[in-house]
Every structure is written in C-alpha cells, then in structure tokens.
Design a protein around this nucleic acid. Structure first.
Lengths: 118, 118
DNA sequence: CTTATATATGAATGTTTATTCATATGATAA
DNA sequence: TTATCATATGAATAAACATTCATATATAAG
C-alpha cells in the first residue's frame, strides 16, 4: 500500500484529515506567522510586557525597556503594522496600547508554558 | 519636572511600575521570544496546525504541509529545541506531537485575533 | 552482514531583519 | 513665524535564518 510509511497510516490519515478541516488558508497562516514574528524579538516582547498594564507614550516605553528612541519607534511601527498594538495621538505624544485581549492571551500562554519546563 | 514628557507622567510611571512588578527577567523574555520565533515561520506554523489533531510521523507531516523531507526535519528540530513539539520513536519512525496545551492556546488566540480585524 | 527505509545533520547560499545615524514630520508654545 | 519637543522615517550595514543538497545515522528486514 502506498501510505505504509509507518505503522499506523490510517490513523495518521485521520489526523491529517481532521487537521485539514480546520486549517486556515495560506493567507491566514501567513498573517498569523507574521504576527508571531512581530512578537518574537526580545525588545518587542518587552515593549508588549510594558504595555500589559496600560497605555504609554513612546518616551516612557523607551525608558521602560531601554534602548534608543529610534529603535523603539521602529519596533512600535512593526507591532502596529501587525496589529499587535494600537495607538492614538494626544497632543505631541503618541499613546500606545495592546491591540486586544487575544494578544495578552498569547503572551500569558507563553508565560505559563515557561513554568511548564522542569 | 524631569518626567514631564507627556501630559500624564504619573499615570505612566504607575503603569510602568505595575508592568515591572510582573515582568519576567531577561532570560525568560529571551526564551519566550525564541519560542514565538519558532512558531513564526509559515511552514513551521503549518506543521503545528497539522499536529493540532494528534501525533504524526515525519513523512505524513511532510505530505500534509508540502516541502521536502530535509526542510521539514530541520523545522521539526527547531520546534523541538524550543519545546513547541515533542517526539517519541516508534520503530523506524519518529512521532511528533504538540508539546502541551499552552502551545495550542497561543495558536488559538492568534486564530481568534485573525477574525478580530474587520 | 547487507540492503532498504525513515529521519537527522552539516555546510553553503541567498534573503530577511534589527539596529544605528541622520534627518524629517507634526504639534505646541513663544 | 520660529523654536522646541515628541515621534517617525530612510538608508546602510551587519547579523540571523530558511532552504537546499549531499550525506550520515538508526532501525528493521532479508
């Protein structure tokens, strides 16, 4: 038989069929991957953790995470482009905050996964 | 005053203080970021989605996601190194599965965030 | 012991990406 | 208007990464 590449080919075919049934299309997978990538740099993750308690202006974000203004602004642009954060203007300042509750859910799950290693 | 860089400096100091109180240390942030990065390539994310319904051998994963054997093996190595998946041997085959429920929680949250854009 | 099969690994290469520096924009105050 | 402050942007460079090809290992079967 063609699919006899392991001991339980039918079982695996079933798993694949089930996975394919709820599999996002390639476009959605690309978007999800890009969002994970946006969160995947330590400096950007740190920004998000700083924003977890509320809205902050750029300079306060910079002070909270270290680094220079330009780097932080570039990082915020990446986070914003990927809908990880949103922002609004307040006079001279831009106030950044986490886009929605799903973002913090992703980060909380990652935090819990940390404590899962022994 | 030195921290008058925006209209609500005390508020921001409070937000920062609150965030710092639960901020993981740099080592943990690095680990979390590396894990997000592991999930952040479309091919690796697709592997995870394929594994969401259960355990699969490498060749079936390869068939499910497309690509060649070597690429998939390298991707699985990255996922394993970052504790996103685990594996066990079964004769000639290696059977891969998602490391734990937190991983799928991260992906579910990302999926829900998708539908949140309008 | 030899062959076949499933998976893993190493090295090379082309692409992506973070960071920096310099400068630009946008908002306010003088 | 001009000066100043907060933030954004562009270009350049250097580091990180995915993918490929060739080959190695590990298990099983003959």
């Amino acid at each position: 038989m063609m699919s006899d590449i392991c001991k339980t080919p039918e079982e695996h075919e079933g798993v694949i069929a089930k996975a394919l049934a709820t599999m996002p299309d390639d476009g959605e997978i690309g978007i999800m991957a890009a969002r994970f990538k946006a969160i995947s740099e330590p400096s950007r993750l740190k920004i998000l953790l700083a924003l977890s308690a509320g809205e902050l202006c750029v300079e306060h974000i910079t002070k909270a995470v270290g680094g220079n203004q330009s780097a932080v602004s570039h990082q915020l642009t990446t986070l914003k482009y990927n809908k990880i954060v949103k922002c609004r203007r307040d006079g001279k300042n831009m106030l950044y905050s986490v886009d929605d509750e799903h973002i913090m859910a992703m980060i909380e799950a990652a935090k819990e996964h940390l404590h899962h290693d022994e």
